[in-house]
């Protein structure tokens, strides 16, 4: 187990270094002089020289990367050109919304996708199964923003049960009740992903149910419910758990759209705005943070996989 953790962590760090080089290079891939692109045509030579100096663009490339990476390791991702504050601050401002949104969405996905997938598998071929599988197909095919708009239309505009947009911090007036602002966005974001997890859980359960060892378990005379829980489910979840890593990646890209639809002050919206403002340091910083989170999540998935499947170490 120890060696496995070290190997996996090492692989994650190597990936991070590779990714950081790509992210760093990004600023030099901008056509023309990045400084002019950032500052626009009306920049005075003084401003240009100041920014060029601040970004260290006159240093050799390797030195630039090392300085940038060294600063990043110490939590300094540079200065936002638009806000003129540290990039870390810009990201942190959106972090609360984005992290809570992702967590609540994951809760929906796991709480809905996995058990309903199990139910559909147990009732394979019945009306229940066909209904649930049809619903899953529908949710997986419909774009997030469309689900979001319909949720707003029904639950916010129509019934008036939930707020339609914005999100005041839970540390401000209203406290935890402010989480109600995240219910509709998280549902919209969860819908297609929960549908995928549902279909995956169902398919995986049905696959495992055909395995020889499930027949062995039945032959022992143990109750059907125990066959499902102890012998089928645990093996079926192996495939589902490894899908969570990809689900997370999907969440990140879909969150950008969702935060825009629901006007949430999250990191996703910050990225969209920064792209329009050509605020490259912020874009770089956010991408770096996302890469780190993605690697950490996948590391957790890999390690939990090891706990679920004793065969992993050999492979």
């Amino acid at each position: 187990m120890g060696r496995y953790v070290i190997r996996r962590t090492g692989a994650a760090i190597a990936t991070l270094i590779a990714a950081s080089i790509v992210i760093f290079a990004f600023i030099h891939l901008i056509p023309g002089d990045p400084v002019y692109v950032m500052l626009g045509d009306g920049a005075t030579p003084d401003q240009v020289a100041a920014l060029r100096d601040k970004m260290g663009l006159d240093e050799p490339l390797v030195a630039q990367y090392l300085i940038w990476a060294g600063n990043a390791l110490q939590g300094d991702l540079g200065q936002s050109i638009f806000f003129e504050t540290p990039v870390t601050q810009v990201i942190l401002a959106g972090a609360e919304t984005s992290i809570l949104l992702a967590l609540i969405t994951m809760v929906w996905i796991i709480a809905f996708g996995v058990p309903v997938g199990i139910l559909a598998a147990i009732r394979q071929g019945t009306m229940i199964d066909q209904g649930l599988s049809g619903l899953a197909m529908l949710l997986a095919s419909v774009p997030t923003f469309w689900v979001g708009l319909y949720l707003i239309l029904i639950f916010a505009a129509g019934l008036g049960w939930l707020p339609s947009s914005g999100y005041p911090s839970i540390f401000e007036q209203g406290g935890l009740a402010n989480l109600s602002y995240l219910i509709l966005p998280s549902l919209a974001l969860a819908a297609p992903n929960a549908a995928l997890i549902l279909r995956l859980t169902r398919a995986s359960m049905l696959d495992v149910a055909r395995e020889d060892y499930v027949r062995t378990a039945r032959a022992k005379g143990i109750r059907p419910s125990r066959v499902v829980l102890r012998h089928i489910l645990r093996n079926a979840l192996l495939a589902v758990v490894s899908a969570f890593g990809f689900t997370f990646a999907a969440l990140i890209s879909e969150a950008v759209v969702t935060e825009t639809v629901f006007a949430l002050p999250g990191v996703g919206r910050t990225v969209v705005q920064s792209i329009m403002r050509r605020d490259y340091p912020v874009i770089q910083g956010v991408i770096l943070v996302i890469v780190c989170m993605f690697l950490v999540i996948n590391l957790i998935v890999d390690l939990s996989y090891r706990l679920l499947d004793p065969r992993v170490e050999l492979e």
């Binding site: 395995e211 020889d212 060892y213 027949r215 062995t216 378990a217 039945r218 032959a219 022992k220 005379g221 143990i222 109750r223 059907p224 102890r230 012998h231 645990r234 093996n235 192996l238 679920l308 499947d309 004793p310 065969r311």
Partner: peptide, 29 residues
């Protein structure tokens, strides 16, 4: 009667082994 029904009625003690010992045991237990 399925095996679990036989257990419940305490009858029919018939057991079975299969062709593929490689796949007949649960790999995670």
């Amino acid at each position: 009667l399925a095996p679990y029904q036989r257990v419940r009625r305490n009858c029919g003690r018939v057991a079975m082994i299969f062709q593929e010992p490689m796949t007949s045991l649960n790999p995670v237990l």
